[in-house]
């Protein structure tokens, strides 16, 4: 083991050097900036660079931030559960019951993505509004007498919109996990006496856990930080932490407080994600390793 690098090492470093540097600049640098900001203080137009925990004290003591953080977590957890629970049967059907043209089906699942995210959120507004498609239809059909108001400008609308938007991201990893299951394992379970229901819980589901965990994380992590949907369909009850972060960086002109909020929610999400991953690994047993 002489000092210095072998030729291959050097080649390797040269190859990954550029993307690594790019990743560092694009990912790590802004993150470091946000973390640094969160320890500074805003004095009207300039920034006091003395390190302080004052912002974090504000985040953890003022009820408004707590409320927003809890609400964001609650909404995104509900969104995640709804999305994954609805995605599973779709993925299951695709994997086990669609014999021909699986690729076409997968393609069709991406159709909602052909319009922009913003447009889709607006469309939900049109559907769920006071004079919207849903209310008009229900009124005309005589099912309701007055337009429903609990469906727009609150947390329900946020859950509905986000669950719809993220469905394909949940379907795909579950589908892939189900596709990977060797069909002879299911026959073996049946051969050993299991009916379809027991077989599902003893073989199919445990083997699909990696996909379910992936789907959960893929949906949960971005939805905690979503701000377009709550802003457009959430009303005041449906506002989430990201909206507050945006306000702090913008109108309120308190970037350090916004940064502290961002870092706090990031840490909370990270802890929850690791928790979900570990639980998934435990349930999924030896496969998830």
């Amino acid at each position: 083991m002489a000092r210095g690098l072998s030729r291959e090492d050097k080649q390797g470093l040269t190859l990954i050097g550029l993307p690594f540097g790019y990743a560092l600049i694009m990912l790590a640098a802004p993150l470091a900036m946000v973390v640094t900001f969160s320890f500074w203080t805003q004095n009207y137009l300039d920034i006091d660079r003395t390190l302080t925990l004052e912002n974090y004290r504000a985040v953890f003591s003022q009820p408004i931030y707590q409320t927003l953080l809890w609400r964001s977590l609650r909404i995104s957890l509900i969104v995640t559960v709804v999305t994954v629970v609805l995605a599973f049967p779709i993925a299951y059907y695709l994997s086990f019951h669609v014999k021909k043209n699986k690729a076409l089906w997968l393609f069709l699942i991406t159709v909602p993505f052909w319009t922009s995210y913003l447009l889709r959120v607006f469309l939900w507004k049109v559907i769920l509004g006071y004079n919207g498609v849903l209310n008009t239809a229900l009124l005309k059909a005589g099912i309701i007498e007055e337009p429903l108001t609990f469906i727009l400008y609150n947390a329900n609308a946020v859950v509905l919109t986000l669950a719809h938007a993220w469905a394909p991201f949940a379907i795909l990893p579950i589908f892939v996990a189900l596709e990977k299951i060797d069909r002879s394992l299911l026959e073996a379970a049946e051969d050993l006496g299991d009916g379809p229901f027991r077989r599902f819980w003893r073989v199919t589901f445990p083997l699909a856990i990696p996909g379910v965990v992936a789907a959960t994380l893929i949906v949960l992590i971005p939805t905690v930080g979503d701000f377009i949907t709550p802003k457009l369909v959430g009303g005041t009850d449906g506002l989430m932490v990201a909206n507050m972060i945006q306000i702090q960086f913008g109108k309120a002109n308190n970037a350090p407080l916004g940064a502290a909020l961002a870092v706090t929610s990031m840490v909370v999400v990270a802890i929850i994600s690791v928790g979900i991953y570990l639980v998934g690994r435990k349930i999924g047993g030896r496969v998830a390793r």
Partner: peptide, 12 residues
């Protein structure tokens, strides 16, 4: 009871 060609041992 069957012994499968691929053995079909439950991996989990």
């Amino acid at each position: 009871n069957m012994v499968f060609q691929s053995y079909a041992i439950f991996p989990h």
